[in-house]
């Protein structure tokens, strides 16, 4: 088996807010205040193999962006480790560390907030390769022009500023900037979410072309299952900091195992599906400050039973390449119906 290009092993990421002075003083008088901790990512395992396109889907607040940032190496973990080609990121040093940093690049949702508004396109794209010695100063313009052309930007626009471009073009600048340092892995965090449907299709096609041309590997983070289904080789579904299911897109859509995945697929609005009845799952996504015990999804799950309220389900293999974390996996099929028939509390 090949080594994963990048692998998260039991990765957790917690954010906590320290008590301020007033709260510390209140604690002296016995207020009993505690630090608030958000478990954004909770013991997640995820491996991305060379040449693969892995989709990471989930709703807002499920920790998918945090996981993406941790895997791109721009955010430290609070537990577990991220391995780049089998070596822990924290153990890399010197040239090896620099080369890993360049090899994993991120493309963000809103290009306007990630492009310095006071820099010209040529500097936005060309600065990093120049600093890292990929091109010499006087070759920079040609290098940037060839990149710009590759991502579909007119090379005559290199001396313009980001505000002079439309949303789709700005996203292309962001892509050219990521490509400029010859990366192996692109982490795309909702990179097409803010774009109109026809522009979105153009950018998605560009991603696919670049993958073939440069042999790129993608971690594609999105809330849009339709997009993910189309371009990914494997889809990973997250809910409240944990991976709940992972499978190939066809398998996931035809045979979803986790009730949350089933709900996501059912509620996906589709042009061809003139279904007039909505059957939404009840309730809100719980606050990651106070996640429910056991399976995080149980308060909203129509199939939940006693075990779900106390025990965290482990990821289990359903079939080759298809894993899910649900206690229903342990029940024989005929019993599942009985569980579902009971009213959810």
């Amino acid at each position: 088996m090949t080594t994963a290009l990048i692998e998260a092993v039991d990765v957790s990421r917690r954010f906590s807010r320290k008590l301020d002075y007033a709260e510390k003083i209140a604690n002296l008088f016995g207020a009993g205040l505690e630090e608030k901790t958000v478990h954004a990512v909770d013991e997640v395992n995820l491996a991305v193999y060379p040449g693969e396109v892995v989709g990471l889907v989930g709703e807002s607040g499920c920790g998918k962006s945090t996981l993406g940032r941790v895997m791109a190496g721009i955010m430290p973990t609070s537990g577990g480790e991220v391995r780049w080609q089998g070596k822990a990121l924290t153990s890399l040093e010197g040239a090896e560390k620099r080369s890993m940093r360049l090899s994993a690049q991120m493309i963000f949702q809103d290009p306007m907030s990630t492009l310095n508004p006071r820099k010209k396109v040529i500097d936005l794209i060309g600065e990093a390769p120049k600093v890292h010695g990929i091109v010499k100063g006087r070759e920079m313009r040609d290098y940037v022009a060839s990149l710009a052309e590759r991502v579909g930007l007119d090379a005559t626009y290199l001396d313009r500023y980001p505000h002079q471009f439309s949303g789709g073009q700005r996203q292309r600048i962001g892509i050219a900037r990521a490509l400029a340092v010859k990366p192996k892995l692109l982490v795309c965090d909702e990179s097409v979410a803010a774009l109109d449907v026809s522009i979105q299709a153009q950018i998605l096609n560009l991603f696919m072309d670049l993958k073939r041309e440069f042999g790129l590997t993608y971690l594609f983070i999105s809330h849009d299952l339709g997009v993910v289904k189309h371009i990914c080789d494997r889809v990973v579904v997250m809910y409240l900091g944990r991976v709940v299911e992972s499978a190939t897109p066809d398998e996931l859509f035809d045979n979803p195992k986790h009730p949350y995945t089933q709900a996501l697929i059912r509620e996906l609005p589709s042009v061809t599906d003139r279904r007039r009845v909505f059957t939404p799952i009840k309730g809100e996504i719980p606050s990651p400050l106070h996640p429910p015990p056991g399976c995080h999804f149980h308060p909203r799950c129509p199939m939940a039973f006693d075990r779900c309220r106390v025990e965290r389900p482990a990821l289990k293999q359903n079939s080759a390449g298809h894993v899910s974390a649900c206690h229903l996996n342990d029940l024989p099929a005929n019993e599942i119906k009985n569980v579902a028939a009971e009213p959810a509390i």
């Binding site: 026809s198 299709a201 998605l204 096609n205 339709g226 189309h230 371009i231 897109p249 042009v271």
Partner: peptide, 17 residues
Amino acid sequence: LLSAVPAAVPRGEPLRP
């Protein structure tokens, strides 16, 4: 517009923007 959505083409094929 209708053929630009990912669901309009088979999986993995180029979209038609």
